[in-house]
Amino acid sequence: MTDDPRLQPYRVDVVGFEAALAELRSVRDEVFVGEQGVPITLEHDALDPLCTHVLARLLDGSPVGTARLTPDRKIGRMAVRAAWRGRGIGDALLRALLDEARRRGWPEVRLNSQASAIGFYARHAFRPEGKRFMEAGIEHLSMVLAFTGPTRIDSREAAIEAAIGIIERARRSVWIRSVALDPWLYDDAGVLQALRSFATRGGGQQVLGLLHDAAGPQQAHSPMLALAQRLPSIFLFRELQDPVDRNDPAAWIAGDGGGYYLRSLGERVQGEAEQDAPARVRQLAARFDDGWQRSRPVSEYRALGL
């Protein structure tokens, strides 16, 4: 185990409020009261004993993040200690609460996002609702996530947002099927940063790329190939060979965290996306694997060190 505690593995558990009270308060008081200046009388409310709480701990037991789910189907009190931000802990906390909401059969969940976190929740398919407002001296926006099926994607911006969310939610596997690593999507700095963070997280991550035209990204000097060259054990590419596969224009990115963005006409932006659709992702992964087994390794990439 590394000597730097910020690089230690962590786990997220549902915890009892009374049993974990000291740990929950230590994180929340540090973040909300200490950092953000929220009055402690507002931070400690009567809802706490009625909520479902999740707690992120390092393997040595140190608490580093927490969040809660209220009886009225709202997510709140999402807090990660400053030194451990940017490691996916917030994503893991949110996934745990969404899993709990789905287990209960709730049709939707809501939250009041601080203005600085709107992008984070948007990547998890939350949508804004109403106008911004002030709460505890901090600007907020109400957001909602309905467990009702896919979202229509009609713009490059929405596609990039969906792809980043899929990658950030993925645990060990990301599957990319594309004609030639569409530059409008896979050259985007945010998407590349999400792939870089995923690939260097540790834990056996893998990004598999299944292409119609392997020469295209190489000729275009795709930045994803440059990233893959530095991480050749993580990124693997194959080219479709079977006429049945090559005549299928569909393209997608999917991750084993339950998210996908599917385009039936692969060279177009228009498609559908979901961030919490594990059954659909399993279907896409099986379809991907069928094509992967019939495809050829891209040997010309190996000349680049891939």
Rank of each mutant, 00 (worst) to 15 (best):
P49Q: 06
A273K: 05
E300I: 05
A101W: 03
T148V: 10
A20R: 05
A136D: 14
R171D: 04
G257W: 01
A220V: 03
N247D: 04
R102A: 10
L59W: 03
E239R: 07
C51R: 11
D29F: 09
K131A: 12
G16Q: 13
R103L: 06
W292L: 09
F237D: 00
Q206A: 12
L185W: 09
I234N: 00
V15L: 06
P39I: 12
A159Y: 02
G16A: 14
S233C: 02
I89Y: 04
R25H: 14
L225F: 03
P71G: 11
A254G: 08
N247E: 11
W184L: 15
G255C: 07
A101P: 03
L42P: 02
S155K: 09
A254V: 02
E157W: 08
G203T: 00
R110T: 15
H124Q: 14
P249R: 03
Y260H: 07
L306V: 09
W106G: 02
A82E: 15
D188Q: 14
G305F: 01
A83R: 15
Y121Q: 05
R77Q: 15
E161C: 06
S155G: 08
P9Y: 06
V244C: 09
C51E: 07
I75L: 13
P183S: 15
Q36D: 00
A303I: 03
D4Q: 10
A250L: 11
E108H: 14
R280I: 10
A163M: 11
A92G: 07
S173M: 00
S299M: 13
A250N: 06
E108G: 11
P107N: 04
S113V: 05
R68S: 09
P278F: 02
G257L: 01
L97T: 00
R196W: 02
R73H: 15
L284V: 11
L21T: 10
L50R: 10
L195R: 01
A158E: 05
R156Q: 10
L145M: 11
G258Y: 04
L58I: 12
G204A: 05
L211F: 05
L24P: 08
S222A: 15
K131R: 13
D72Q: 14
L195V: 00
V144D: 08
S113N: 05
T52H: 06
I166Q: 06
A199S: 07
F133K: 09
R201A: 09
L97M: 04
L47E: 10
C51Y: 00
D276Y: 14
H53K: 11
G258K: 05
